[in-house]
């Protein structure tokens, strides 16, 4: 089974976000990690490989710093990686990312492509499904359980209020949610081995693409920071008094009950 995993490096969700003088997100000094939802995709890929054999290839689109995330994915157990890193790329929107990733995945044997449902930086939940469309592959999103029997994949997908069971003949793109598995930690041996695993770095031209032909369709005009919510009052007294005061405040002051 040739398994490809789309992985993005993201900012640690705990990081304090500030804007630089250009009004952009300042990533200086923030911890960068594998997008937590992509970790589930990597874990699922490794489990499929353990069951059925095959190879796990990580594909990422990102700058020099993203190599660290690639090495972490290889340390978890992935076999090899492809990183598209081209300084000619400026702002990349979801459609562009999908176009580039599609080209890269097309160069690889792929029976199944796994991805996170969204990246925690951008929260857009678009790139993997867009890539599927670009490659004319079927996709199943938000999968919480995945079974593969020869070339048939059966997936449980989270829907509003429950679960849907879907079937698809591979190749297909599957996006996963938290809960599908528990992610392993890389072992020391895994970290050592990762250093020697093949990482191919590609420019857009290697994929037959040209930055000037890739246009942003969803343009970020500016970023702002939220005004932090103010903590209110802690209600005094014994639990019974506090509970009674709270009920009264909710009715009379907050007017929500």
């Amino acid at each position: 089974m040739n398994i490809v995993v789309l992985m993005k490096q993201t900012v640690d969700t705990e990081a304090k976000i500030v804007l630089n003088s250009d009004g952009k997100i300042d990533t200086n000094g923030v911890t960068l990690v594998i997008n937590p939802l992509d970790e589930y995709a990597i874990e699922e890929a490794l489990r499929i490989k353990e069951r059925l054999g095959g190879e796990v290839t990580i594909v990422t689109l990102g700058g020099d710093q993203a190599t660290a995330a690639v090495r972490s994915a290889l340390a978890m157990g992935a076999d090899k990686a492809v990183q598209i890193n081209d300084p000619a790329l400026g702002e990349v929107d979801e459609g562009m990312a999908a176009t580039i990733l599609a080209k890269a995945v097309q160069t690889l044997p792929h029976d199944i492509v796994l991805a996170g449902v969204m990246d925690t930086d951008n929260g857009s939940a678009q790139v993997a499904v867009r890539m599927a469309e670009k490659m004319e592959l079927p996709s199943i999103s938000s999968v919480t359980k995945l079974d593969i029997d020869e070339s048939l994949a059966t997936a449980k997908r989270v829907i509003d209020g429950g679960l849907a069971t879907l079937e698809v003949t591979l190749p297909a793109v599957i996006t996963v949610v938290q809960g599908i598995n528990e992610v392993r930690y890389p072992s020391v041996a895994g970290i050592m081995k990762a250093k020697k695993k093949p990482l191919t770095v590609l420019k857009l031209s290697d994929l037959g693409l040209d930055a000037s032909n890739l246009a942003v369709q969803a343009k970020v005009l500016k970023f702002t920071l939220p005004i932090p919510r103010q903590g209110g009052k802690k209600l005094p007294g014994e639990p019974a008094e506090a509970a009674s005061l709270l009920a009264r405040l909710l009715r009379e002051e907050a007017k929500v009950l």
Binding site: V11, T13, A15, K16, I17, L19, I25, T120, D121, N122, G123, A215, V216, Q217, A218, K219, V220, L221, K222, F223, T224, L225, P226
Partner: peptide, 20 residues
Amino acid sequence: LLFKRPVFTGSAFSFVEILT
């Protein structure tokens, strides 16, 4: 129409213009 969306775990907002 300009769209406001939370990004970075709600630690920032982006304002997005769709050009298509």
